Simulated scan of single mutants.
Amino acid sequence: MDDGGGARRLRGDAVTLAHGAGGRAMRDLIDEIFLKAFGETRVSGLEDQARLALDAFGGGTLAFTTDSFVIDPIFFPGGDIGKLAVCGTVNDLVVGGAKPVALTCSVIIEEGLAFADLHRIAESMATAAAEAGCRIVTGDTKVVPRGAADRIFVNTAGIGAIPADRSLAARHIRPGDALIVNTTLGEHGAAVMAARGDLGLTSALQSDCRPLGELVEALLEAAPDTRAIRDATRGGVATVLNEFAAASGTCCRIAEDKLPLREEVRGISEILGLDPLYIACEGLFVAAVPQAQTEAALAALRKRSGGEAACQIGEVVATPQGRAVMTSFFGGDRLVDMLEGEQLPRIC
């Protein structure tokens, strides 16, 4: 397929793991297959949630999102597939400014999964939903033969209500805005890779998997003119920066020496030859905030669990438009492009 100018965007004849990695290949798959088939779905500017006007119900805006989880292993330091499913879906709502209301839970279970594991996952989902301030209200269960799945896959959808005075979207970002994060990079992906055991890695690192609602509310109270927020899952912080830049026609410029990074994550990244900017997070968001409100935003985040390491990693500038750029430790600049290919399969 081409992009209208003759350039082929989907390469080859079949889906590869790269098409699920959160980078450029996945974006091309979505654009060329699903958006073309489904028609006008860009009403939300490809944010993490659709936003639907509720005129028939007296006004307001409904946020609606869905996600599927296929992580390996299904239990990992700091969480499991159940907690991950709830947090991932809730976070896609709250970064749009929504207050979560209800979730669905659909599971595809491989024959042979122990009841004890299923109980553990269900209880984990209930606990995470309660922490996020919402309920799991409906769902579906399917069982497939041994070998037709990998223990369990989970799909969750979520709905939330966006207050009338909020309009968070990447298109609102403008030059001069500060780029901030609430915590350290790459903890989820690094913890899951270490937990797989096939590389002989040992680490006390835990996934940062958590619901972000309380942190987002604190941010918006302290910095009410926040332009956009997005959680950095597949594709990591680098993908968020590129999405911000593309949607706003600006450049997201960051500094390598400003990136908050645990030594354990740095070490695992070096062993595996990975760039922490592209490693998945499950409790980290990137926000574009007006410079005048940045200090208040950071102070508010640092007072709360999951926000202690909040910091500014860069700022938005005018050029080069649609790109992300990083100033290295040595003072040189390099482009931070969208993730190419597949980096960490089955990470969420």
Rank of each mutant, 00 (worst) to 15 (best):
T16C: 04
V286A: 05
V336Y: 03
D3C: 09
D337K: 13
C281D: 15
N182G: 04
F76V: 04
I121P: 08
A161L: 13
E187L: 13
T233S: 13
K99G: 07
L259H: 05
P345T: 07
F244G: 01
I33Q: 04
G283T: 00
R9Q: 15
I180H: 02
V86F: 01
P260A: 08
D337M: 10
M26F: 04
D333T: 13
C348R: 11
G79Y: 02
V95C: 09
R266W: 06
P320D: 02
R227N: 01
D80S: 12
L84A: 11
D48N: 11
A169V: 01
A218C: 06
L113N: 03
G273H: 07
D150A: 10
T138D: 14
C105N: 09
A287K: 01
C311L: 05
T66D: 10
R24W: 10
I136T: 00
G23D: 01
A299W: 05
F75A: 12
A116G: 13
R9Y: 10
R174D: 02
R334A: 14
A232R: 05
D333E: 15
G235N: 09
K36F: 05
M193I: 15
G58L: 08
G60D: 09
A247M: 03
V95P: 00
E131W: 00
P290V: 06
A56Q: 14
T239W: 03
A280I: 11
S68K: 03
L113S: 07
A149E: 10
L272R: 12
R120H: 15
R174H: 09
A56S: 14
A228T: 05
M338R: 15
I71L: 09
A85F: 03
A223D: 02
M193F: 12
L185V: 11
E295C: 08
A102D: 06
A310L: 07
F64T: 01
M26N: 05
L284E: 01
K142P: 04
A114H: 14
L259S: 07
L335H: 12
M193Y: 10
I159S: 04
D67V: 08
T319Q: 09
D225K: 12
G45D: 05
V95R: 00
E47R: 09
G235W: 04
A18R: 07
R323P: 04
A37E: 14
F329I: 15
L205V: 10
D225P: 02
K99Y: 11
F153L: 11
F330L: 15
E217Q: 12
F153Q: 06
T65A: 09
A287T: 05
E32N: 06
A98I: 05
G6L: 11
V95G: 01
E270K: 14
R171Y: 00
V90I: 12
V336M: 08
G307C: 01
I81V: 14
R151D: 12
V43L: 14
M338P: 00
L118M: 12
R210F: 04
H19D: 12
V325I: 15
S269I: 07
